[in-house]
């Protein structure tokens, strides 16, 4: 079955955290669902909130930002990323999106178990709430209905 029929999870993993943690998981040969796409990042503090919205629009149904948190080599990463994600939540709510689709998790270079936990949790969630495109469409039609009702 093609993965296009599965919800997709985008993972932004820091080189000093999540991405290396995913490598550790690989070195331990521990299976997890394959609908996960991990992109290496220096630090997620570089992503403006709008970036996440656009990612959802491109068909990412869930996004996990695996940063290094307080262990990061970058001083602003911990607080800065959290602030940006909070703003992203605002934008998501405005668009009627389930904010659980975006998660921030601190994953270290050898955090194999936490990595698997995050991935599996997101998968379980997506199994329940389905594709983001459906959610966006539902929201849009709700607005239309609402406007129609008002109009």
């Amino acid at each position: 079955m093609s993965q296009s029929q599965q919800p997709k999870i985008l993972i932004l993993g820091t080189l000093s955290g999540g991405y290396a943690g995913a490598d550790s998981t690989g070195q331990s040969h521990l299976d997890y669902p394959p609908n996960t796409y991990i992109l290496p990042v220096m630090s997620p503090v570089m992503f403006p909130p709008e970036f996440y919205l656009r990612a959802f629009e491109h068909g990412m149904d869930g996004i996990i930002v695996m940063y290094s948190g307080t262990d990061s080599p970058y001083k602003v990463e911990a607080d800065g990323t959290a602030k940006l994600i909070n703003r992203a939540y605002q934008l998501m709510k405005e668009r009627g999106m389930d904010i659980r689709r975006l998660r921030l998790a601190a994953i270290c270079t050898v955090c194999v178990k936490p990595f698997l936990k995050e991935v599996n949790q997101m998968n379980d969630l997506l199994e329940g709430i389905g594709f983001v495109k459906d959610e966006i469409a539902a929201h849009a039609s709700a607005i239309v209905t609402q406007e129609a009702a008002h109009g």
Partner: peptide, 29 residues
């Protein structure tokens, strides 16, 4: 250090971390 804190806040996307630009990420996604 290339953390990119400046990238997220720039309203014009005028600053980027070399080799890890926002445009590249968007294209990848």
């Amino acid at each position: 250090v290339g953390c990119g804190a400046c990238v997220a806040v720039c309203p014009n996307n005028a600053v980027n971390v070399q080799g890890w630009t926002l445009a590249q990420y968007e294209a990848m996604v």
